[in-house]
Amino acid sequence: MSVKKPSILLVDDESYNLMILEECFQEHDYDLTTAEDGQQAWALLQANPHDFDVVLLDWMMPQMDGLEVLKRIKAHTDLQHIYVIMQTARAGKGEVRQGMDAGAYYYLTKPYKEEDIQSIVETAVHDSQHRQAVQRIVEQNVSTFGLVKKGMFEYKTLAECQALSILLANTYPDSEKIATGLSELMINALEHGNLGIGYDEKTQLKKQGAWLSEINRRSALPEYSAKTVSVSYQKDAAAIRLTIEDEGAGFDWQNFLTLNPERAKDNHGRGILTALNSFDKLEYLGTGNKLIVQVQL
């Protein structure tokens, strides 16, 4: 069976800009579709709601501007999962905040370097593919673990982390909603907590395409290989509560409960926000190496 190429919708009212974007991604294995204004983009999205993984969207356009397209995407049940990268010359903090509040996953201010947009699109494509893969597995096993009431788990590696997050997501009534956010939190505990990969370091690893290999390399080193992330699961008639605790020193978690406009152009840093949309309650304890998430039943 052939693997579907990542599909990207490029939206800009300047044909020259569209040509530059197509050239920028010509060496990547993407299916590229172009739209010359917001109305054309919205028509394509409505007609093909499951076709696109990422939308690279200009803000200032005639007929329908990018912000209106973004708002419609996020209000549409079949489209709201799409990762939208807003690109614009509007660089003020208030405008960046407006775009992020409307649901933009990334925010690029013009002019930008080719390597920056390539890195951000690559990250958005990876995140989209990961979300789809997790949800496919969850859908296949959605009734398997419905009888689980209580459990204690540990993981050390990324493979163990991903397998456990899928198992646990299957115990929730709305497993698809939970899957991606839970996966993000559990990966954070491993990479930032136990393996000590900081925010700036991850930015560079993502740009270099070396994030996954570095995770696996560190997991095998003596100073990290014995560290575990523990997960406690408790289900009763009222709620499902999950506690995740790593062996790291913690982090400044308060800064990641909202999206700072200064991080809007970074190629990662949205995992906790994703989780906030998945759970009814998310609470970090102490220095941030322990958190509790809860879903009401």
Rank of each mutant, 00 (worst) to 15 (best):
N255F: 08
A239M: 09
Q118Y: 03
V96G: 05
H130N: 10
E23L: 08
M64I: 14
Y199R: 04
Y83E: 14
D37G: 02
W42H: 03
G198W: 06
D101I: 05
G146P: 02
T228G: 01
G271M: 07
A163F: 07
K149C: 15
K149Y: 00
H81S: 09
G151A: 14
S175P: 15
V134I: 14
I215V: 14
F25I: 00
D58E: 10
H268P: 15
T180C: 07
S175N: 13
S119L: 11
G193V: 07
L9Q: 03
E201T: 13
L257N: 11
Y16I: 06
A35V: 03
Q208W: 00
A43H: 02
V3H: 06
D51I: 07
A124R: 10
A159F: 07
D29Y: 00
L273M: 09
L285I: 10
N188F: 09
P222F: 03
Y224R: 01
I8F: 06
S278V: 05
E115R: 04
D37F: 04
S15D: 14
V96R: 09
V54P: 09
E160M: 10
V142D: 04
A159V: 11
A249D: 04
M186V: 12
T287Y: 02
A275G: 06
R218N: 08
L291M: 08
K207D: 00
G196M: 14
K202D: 04
A133C: 06
V293Q: 09
M64C: 09
T171E: 10
N277E: 13
A35Q: 00
E27Q: 14
V231W: 08
S2E: 04
T274E: 15
Q46L: 12
L190T: 14
E115Q: 09
P261Q: 05
N216G: 00
D236C: 11
S128N: 02
G250D: 01
L168A: 08
G288H: 03
W253A: 09
D200K: 03
S219K: 01
E27M: 08
R97A: 11
A75R: 02
E247I: 02
A237K: 08
S2L: 05
V125P: 04
E68C: 12
H50N: 13
T157S: 15
K156E: 05
D13P: 14
L297Y: 02
G151T: 04
H126P: 00
I73L: 05
G103N: 07
T274Y: 03
V229H: 01
I166F: 15
N255P: 00
E27P: 01
Q129C: 05
L168K: 12
L205N: 11
M19Y: 06
D127L: 08
S232R: 05
L212V: 06
V125N: 14
I120K: 12
E36I: 06
K227R: 15
L273G: 14
V142S: 10
Q204W: 03
D246G: 01
V121T: 12
K290N: 06
L167P: 13
W253M: 03
K150M: 08
L18W: 01
H76S: 13
Q118P: 08
T77S: 06
Q140H: 02
A124N: 09
N277C: 07
G92D: 14
A189D: 11
N267C: 13
M86W: 11
D101M: 02
A169V: 04
Q80T: 02
D29S: 08
N216I: 00
E154L: 02
K265T: 07
A41F: 01
I137K: 12
I137W: 08
I73E: 01
V295H: 10
T274R: 04
K202F: 06
E122L: 07
E122H: 11
